[in-house]
Design a protein around this nucleic acid. Structure first.
Lengths: 261, 261
DNA sequence: CAAATTAGTGAAGGGTGTTAACCGTAAACG
DNA sequence: CGTTTACGGTTAACACCCTTCACTAATTTG
């Protein structure tokens, strides 16, 4: 027996899946309440003993990777939700609202951010189950930028304008962007995406790590400045005043809800 | 007695100073050979036992802060040395060469970089002895940028053009830049510096953390692109071809010496 | 029903930071 | 000068940490 239930999973498999879910849940609770992420703490929080966790993860690092992936997935969902509060014909608005949400999330959950985006070890190990489930924040931002390109048709460099190393990279991108729909002559779009990600990651990481005047961080002006300077490359220069208003609204409302925590 | 020697330090104080020096030396050796930085490891490397270190640092975190500060100091010296290989009248060259050296150092010593620039805890604790010895990489880059401004007199926003939060921050800067010599109406320079630091930190941190296509990192094109896009704000737009050649030379020579390690 | 896989246990080894009690020796004081 | 203090080190111990091993009870499988 054990052939199937309604979802094709045997009873044990379902239980195992539930345990995985509980592991990430317990881990995120720990992280959220400022505690260290440790095998023992997670295990005891689940009413288990530490060695038992080795039935599910091969090492401590694997646990970290697992929850990092799960955090990325759920955080990305909130970014997407923010974008979806705007109509689909406002690609620029959707993009800036999503990146603003990214910044707010990072500043509110610095440990989670560090785990996912500043963990030098995690990287290559992003290979548990449904890695191909197109979650991962990267996908979202590339998709939103692609939407913008479809609407503004901003200029992208041609392939032979690109440096050789970049050309290689955009022709065979590692970070799986949805480039299948992009015609080959417009693949410079991927380069624009890399530039944008660099800008976004840079300012957010700097703010989260705190290597900047706290007053500047709190105001969000540096973040806005970076976006403001980058937006023209996406053909959003004219729209910037409206987009900036959108972002400021979200920054302020985030600051408000931060005071009553 | 014990009043003085030639340097006003008593024998014990000199010995203590030497021990501090040995602590940072041992720590950096450990870091350099890929080991973890731990109190025990440092102690045994010095022929001591772990609790003895508590006569010098109050906690593990304090040890980390100590070596972070020392690393920053010595790394900054190498950046300055790179700049000093160019004549003083080439302020632009000196700046781009220094930041290129910064990037190379970061990629070559990722652990050290993470310790100094991605340690969320270190920050406020940067207060051991000669913190006021104007080392800290921040000082160097502000000085080099100030040189550039003296030569190109690039445009900086006036105080009332700045957002309120930024105005406060440049009028009373936390990161102690050499702003005493800057007349009040040109204090927008500090804002330009903050922007530049954001750009530099962003791309370098992204490269070090590895959240980018390795081929792009290896080529250095993203780093060059960031500098290229920022340079015009410093009045270095016309000089960019020459400056880019300078940087490429340093990037390539660094890549060469990396293959035979 | 018997066999095999699974998910858990407890004990143990080796690592970490940290505190406490103790002890020579070098400096400071009368 | 001798006495006292303070400094710089020790060992022992505690409380964590990751990890492995041997073992057991239950569940699935043939």
């Amino acid at each position: 027996m054990s052939v199937a239930q309604d979802d094709g999973l045997t009873r044990r498999e379902r239980q195992r899946e539930a345990t995985f879910e509980e592991i990430t849940r317990a881990s995120r609770e720990l992280l959220g309440q400022g505690a260290e992420l440790s095998l023992r703490a997670v295990a005891t929080k689940m009413g288990m003993t530490a060695p038992a966790l080795y039935r599910y993860v091969g090492s401590y690092q694997e646990l970290v990777d697992l929850v990092a992936y799960e955090i990325d997935k759920s955080a990305t969902a909130t970014f997407a939700a923010a974008a979806d509060r705007l109509p689909t014909d406002d690609a620029g608005g959707r993009l800036v609202v999503a990146v603003t949400e990214f910044r707010t999330w990072a500043l509110t959950n610095p440990r989670e951010f560090a785990l996912v985006f500043a963990n030098p070890i995690a990287e290559a190990a992003c290979v548990r189950r449904e890695m191909n489930t197109l979650a991962c924040s990267g996908h979202l931002f590339t998709d939103l930028m692609l939407e913008v390109w479809h609407q503004t048709h901003f200029a992208v460099p041609t392939l032979d304008e690109l440096p050789a190393a970049i050309r290689e990279s955009v022709l065979d991108p590692l970070i799986p962007a949805k480039v299948e729909k992009v015609p080959r002559e417009h693949l410079g779009l991927v380069w624009a995406y890399m530039q944008g990600w660099t800008q976004l990651y840079g300012v957010v990481a700097l703010e989260v790590m705190g290597h900047m005047d706290p007053r500047v961080i709190e105001s969000g002006e540096m973040f806005l400045d970076v976006i403001r300077n980058y937006a023209p490359r996406l053909g959003l220069g004219d729209e910037m005043p409206r987009l900036e208003a959108l972002m400021r609204a979200r920054i302020d409302s985030a600051a408000e809800s931060a005071v009553n925590d």
